[in-house]
Design a protein around this nucleic acid. Structure first.
Lengths: 157, 157
DNA sequence: TATTGTTATACTCTATAACTATA
DNA sequence: TATAGTTATAGAGTATAACAATA
């Protein structure tokens, strides 16, 4: 395994570790990643219709019905009438829902501090510049609808 | 959004782009990520029992039954008798399965070249060193079973 | 006519429990 | 007794199709 392959495998390991830890931590709260995504959108956009949530998250409105049902059942959100459109439903965070998203936002700030706080500024800027190159390359590869796309069809160890 | 938050959000964007592109590309081949994971293990370890696949992938043996059923149906693998243990079944790649994993390995090498090939060596080493720091921090945070764990319970934009 | 939300149905991945055959 | 693999059942996320109420 050369240097480049080693870096790629560390990127994949990072993604797996973060994903798995996120799932465990959410399960402790009785949440899943999809349901948490709904809470996150509500925390950022405020009360939103089902259709708005579907557009923000990139799933169908039928999916939103199920996710919101589960979140209502667990007390994280509530449904309320839309003030002007009687077809629409607004999903609003409950106090419990707001408390959870506040906690998650704080944990995210803590994590970022732990990740980068110990790097000296020169090292961080070097890392950040390399990350820019990698992200730009991936953006270009995946937005290209030609045969060159789907170049990331590679799997982890 | 400060510098550190920007870097974190780019890491999350990178994970989303790679995951989504990987799913699209696999769907073109009639594969899913879970089924591809089975193919990948077989390509690296050679023929393996269901129990071996379950251990390598980290799911239950019941899951493996379903994944192998699907892969057999699509012609990527075949089941064969274990030479000495009559309880066990060996899963082997077919020619089609080998062709697919070979293609994926080549695509992975191409992607790595596209990601890092344009960086000059100094820039790559700086990026790689920063990646080490981030990965070590995440490893430490997620392996710690104390209250400090689950620090990555943060969600993307 | 178009949009909003719901219900019905289906597929994939995951898990636990119960079972058969074999070690 | 323990292990290998299967089947049955259930829950979660996703999708499409059909529907009622409203715009």
């Amino acid at each position: 395994m050369n240097e480049h392959e080693g870096a790629w495998s560390r990127i994949l390991e990072l993604a797996v570790l973060v994903n798995d830890d996120m799932d465990r931590s959410l399960a402790d709260l009785g949440l899943t990643r999809s349901r948490t995504h709904v809470l996150w959108v509500l925390a950022q956009q405020g009360s939103t219709t089902h259709a708005g949530l579907a557009a923000a998250i990139g799933v169908t409105a039928q999916n939103i019905t199920g996710l919101v049902d589960a979140l209502v059942g667990a007390g994280f959100v509530a449904r309320s009438r839309h003030p002007t459109d009687r077809r629409a439903t607004l999903v609003v965070l409950t106090e419990r829902g707001s408390a959870v998203t506040d906690t998650m936002a704080r944990q995210q700030r803590d994590l970022i501090q732990q990740l980068f706080g110990s790097m000296d500024p020169r090292q961080f800027r070097a890392f950040s510049a390399g990350l820019d190159v990698v992200l730009d390359t991936v953006r270009r590869l995946t937005s290209d609808a030609s045969a060159a796309a789907h170049a990331t069809a590679s799997v982890g160890t």
